[in-house]
């Protein structure tokens, strides 16, 4: 029996009835276990060190959640969450948030997160912008005709115009992607772009049963978007992006 005062690292929460043994090791190589309370089970491991090596432990955090959510619905807890003790975990989390956690588990039950990221081919994107916008094309010609930095302000203006065009395209393509994919999902979230050429970065909450039709929709979207956009389709993941309570803000939510 361990010391009840040992700090615990928290990976996620699932229904107590849903839990299975997690075979992979957790942060600091520790065994992953659960703490049960009120029908909920928190996935935890004990931590010794005063500081965790984030780069290494992130992988452990990820693996534990991947493994645990293979067959169960797990609400992921933010990476790096350590509570003072098992008792603190029960009282200040499982007990205090019992209602919120049950509701979340209900909403997320049998659902997974799928990510659809898209990136422009930069050269193609810029060529399209120049071809489609006479203003950009004209300014580009002028800037090109000027020597050195003589056209400094024109260059800035040109860049500004292009950025505006790119933003418009981004918006339109995001809308298109949501129109195609949202009908196959329970909820959608727009995530932050992860690169300069990002067209969109979308997270979807999808019924496990609907994964296949969602995948087909992604393939269809890819065909529609054609060569100008590269799509990456990732998942299934535990519903990292859908752990907040107010699930529908701004985007059509629960079906």
């Amino acid at each position: 029996m361990h010391d009840p005062g040992t700090p615990v690292y928290v990976y996620g929460v699932l229904a107590a009835s849903d839990q299975e043994v997690v075979a992979v090791s957790g942060v600091e190589g520790a065994d992953v276990t659960t703490v049960e309370h009120a029908g909920l089970a928190a996935l935890i491991s004990r931590v010794r060190a005063d500081a965790l090596a984030a780069a290494k432990e992130l992988r452990a955090h990820w693996r534990v959640l991947e493994e645990a959510s293979l067959h169960a619905t797990v609400v992921p807890v933010r990476f790096g969450t350590v509570m003072a003790s098992e008792q603190a975990l029960r009282e200040e989390f499982l007990e205090r948030d019992v209602q919120r956690l049950r509701e979340l588990l209900d909403k997320l039950n049998g659902r997974v997160q799928l990510i659809v990221k898209a990136e422009y081919d930069e050269e193609r994107l810029l060529r399209d912008v120049v071809e489609a916008s006479p203003a950009v094309a004209a300014l580009r010609e002028r800037v090109r005709a000027l020597p050195g930095d003589a056209g400094y302000y024109d260059q800035i203006r040109l860049g500004e115009l292009v950025a505006g065009e790119v933003a418009r395209r981004r918006e339109a393509d995001t809308r298109l992607a949501l129109d195609v994919l949202e009908p196959h999902a329970v909820a959608a979230r727009e995530e932050q772009a992860t690169s300069r050429n990002s067209a969109f970065n979308l997270a979807f909450l999808v019924d496990r049963d609907a994964e296949e039709s969602f995948g087909i929709a992604v393939a269809g979207l890819s065909t529609t978007l054609g060569d100008r956009i590269d799509i990456r389709f990732l998942g299934p993941l535990p519903p990292y992006s859908f752990t907040d309570a107010d699930l529908g803000a701004g985007i059509p939510a629960w079906a």
């Binding site: 928290v10 807890v77 933010r78």
Partner: peptide
């Protein structure tokens, strides 16, 4: 990005 930035935040958790 998702793994680092997303997930349930426990109000009282110890940093």
């Amino acid at each position: 990005d998702v793994i680092l930035d997303k997930g349930l935040v426990i109000d009282a958790y110890v940093r």
